[in-house]
Structures are given as structure tokens and as C-alpha cells.
Design a binder for these strands. Structure first.
Length: 285
RNA sequence: GGCUCGAUAGCUCAGUUGGUAGAGCAGCGGAUUGAAAAUCCGCGUGUCGCUGGUUCGAUCCCGGCUCGAGCCA
């Protein structure tokens, strides 16, 4: 794997202009685009997830877009498994993989590698979901007191995950995680990537415009068309709001306002994530 | 024209028997290696409409004015 063909990461908040930036890079560096977005993996929600359109995709090879059925399950680990062979295949052809996306956790699996922790167990999670938070914390306390102190106890999902790992491995999560974290630190000097930063007001404006285009450009039809199909895709911003609109609970204008707000909040969380990735080169647009 | 009610944070409103005020939402900040566009945590940002009066002290009480809603003419 030649150094010059190492993947280049293009990160940034939603609506910051990653797609356009990546296409320019692809042209400049003779690269190919690899999706780094958790929701653009799914087929049938291209508009809702702001995936690149056919015209954009026609200029350079695009990988990992719309390859999952809407009903399929996915997680950061599966994404990693799918992306690694695609990236090496691009490199083997002498091209540079340009990974574009805003899903911090998914990208981190690519940049830092997956931890040796076991993947989620749906059945176990269902059981734990039914239990009280205090009960889960008490059990975690018995198995791994260090983790019980360290985990965000207010976040049932994180407590559940910690306990899940203990139960599946018979080991202490805290020790498993510590070992892995210490190993990934030195990796960062070899990573290449940019974080596209846009002025907050400008970003909000772009979110407002894009949300309107999305709702008028087919997102409502996409959501309506997938009625009855359950899976990860339903957690995309806009699904809940569009369903409320379709059922007549709220007006289209209210729907638009709610989606805009949710998108702005998401963009802020993304910036918090990328701010922590010190290896990313900041590019102010 | 008369009467009544309202005017407090970006928005919707609560409150102060007179000691310069607080909720929700928005906003801002943070956490986050296998659900992540998820999930969770922290932070109040204010000429209390304007103007006189009473008072040691007024956002609160009294008068006037402005704006808004309603009722009566």
C-alpha cells in the first residue's frame, strides 16, 4: 500500500458541501469516491439522505452508495467490513480512495480500526431494554466496577452496551477498551483528511434550503413508499416528521421547520465530533 | 369613542403579598468504538412595552401613553 494512495477522508457537518469538495479532489488526484455516511448506504432514501445524484456519480466511480436494502441492519462494524475491500481494490488500481461522509463513528472504524469488542446482540439488548436502568447499573457494578463508574450512567444505551460486552465475553469492558485505546493513539500521524468548516449562519442557511428541496424533491414519497419496512433507515432525520405530515398531524410547513431544527442539531453534534479528531486538517469554506 | 384583558429571554408563557426574575422549546457547549442522522449530559442569553408618581427601593402599586386581542357603541 503506497503512501500516496492512502485514503483521504473528507469530513464535515451535513450540508457543509462535502460532495462537491470531494468531486474536486477526485478530479485533482485521480481518485474514487467511497461513501462514509451511515444512511447513504441504503437504497430508496437517496433524497432523504442527500446522497449524490446520478449526475454527480457519473463523473467518478462511487462506492458503497445505496447498496443495502432498507430493511437491512447495519452498524459501524459491518460498514468497516464492507469498506476495507473496496478501499484496497481502489488502491490496487492505482487510484486514491476518497472517503466522504459525516458519520463520525463509522469513519472512526475506518481510521482507527474496529475494537476487539463483540458486536451487538439484538436479543440481549431487547432483554436489557425491558429492565430498569438502575438494575443494569447494579449488575455492571458487580461485574466491572471500573466501568460502572466510568460509563455515562444517564445514557441507558451506553450502560446497556457496556453490560452487553461483559456478558458476551465474560471479561471486563473497562480492560478490553483500555487495551485497545492505547494501541490506536499512534495511528493518527499517518491519517490524511480534511474537516470542512463553514460559518454557522451560512450552514444554517444551507440546511434550510436543502431541507426544502428535499421535501419537495421526493423525500416524502420515499418515506411513504417504505411504509412497513423497518430498520436503521427509519432513524434518519425527517422520517418521523414526514410521517407526522403524511398522517395529517402537522402541516408541511411545520414538518419543514422540525426537520430544519433537527438537522441543525445534528450538524452541531457532528462538529463536536470532528473537533476532537485532531488529525483532521481544518479547511474553512 | 367607551370598557375589559394582555405586553416579562429568540418563541410560548409562569412569577414576584414591592428587595432587579424562571420553565418548556429554540440556541450554545460537551460526551460518544459495533443502534451513531442514534443516545445522553451541561449552560439562562433579560432596559420585565414607554413615561410620570408613591416608596429607602417599582418588573410588581397608581396615573398617562403606545401597541395587540376582545366586548359594547
Amino acid at each position: 500500500m503506497s503512501e500516496t494512495r492512502a485514503p483521504l477522508f473528507v469530513c464535515g457537518a451535513t450540508a457543509s458541501g462535502k460532495t462537491a469538495y470531494a468531486l474536486r479532489l477526485a478530479k485533482e488526484l485521480d481518485g474514487e469516491i467511497v461513501n462514509g455516511d451511515a444512511f447513504q448506504l441504503f437504497r430508496g432514501i437517496e433524497v432523504l439522505s442527500a446522497a449524490p445524484d446520478d449526475h454527480e456519480k457519473s463523473t467518478f466511480p462511487h462506492h458503497l452508495f445505496g447498496l443495502l436494502e432498507p430493511g437491512e441492519k447495519c452498524d459501524a462494524g459491518r460498514y468497516h467490513e464492507m469498506a476495507i475491500p473496496v478501499i484496497s481494490e481502489i488502491q490496487s488500481r492505482g487510484k486514491i480512495p476518497i472517503v466522504v461522509g459525516g458519520s463520525g463513528l463509522y469513519l472512526k472504524f475506518l481510521t482507527h480500526g474496529p475494537s476487539p469488542l463483540p458486536k451487538g446482540d439484538a436479543k440481549l439488548r431487547e432483554q436489557m431494554e425491558a429492565r430498569a436502568l438502575g438494575d443494569l447499573i447494579a449488575e455492571l457494578e458487580k461485574i466491572d466496577p471500573v466501568e460502572a463508574r466510568r460509563v455515562n450512567r444517564a445514557n441507558k444505551r451506553y450502560v446497556t452496551r457496556s453490560l452487553e460486552i461483559c456478558l458476551l465475553t465474560g471479561q471486563k469492558v473497562s480492560e478490553l477498551r483500555d487495551g485497545w485505546h492505547s494501541k490506536t493513539k499512534e495511528l493518527e500521524s499517518s491519517l490524511r483528511g480534511v474537516w470542512l468548516i463553514r460559518d454557522r449562519g451560512d450552514l444554517h442557511e444551507r440546511i434550510a434550503v436543502r431541507t426544502r428541496q428535499m421535501l419537495q424533491g421526493g423525500a416524502v414519497e420515499e418515506v411513504a413508499g417504505l411504509a412497513g419496512i423497518h430498520g436503521n433507515w427509519e432513524k434518519a432525520i425527517g422520517v418521523k416528521e414526514i410521517r407526522q405530515y403524511v398522517s395529517g398531524e402537522i402541516s408541511l410547513q411545520q414538518c419543514e421547520e422540525l426537520v430544519v431544527v433537527a438537522t441543525r442539531q445534528y450538524a452541531k453534534r457532528q462538529e463536536t465530533w470532528f473537533r476532537r479528531e485532531k488529525w483532521l486538517k481544518q479547511v474553512v469554506i
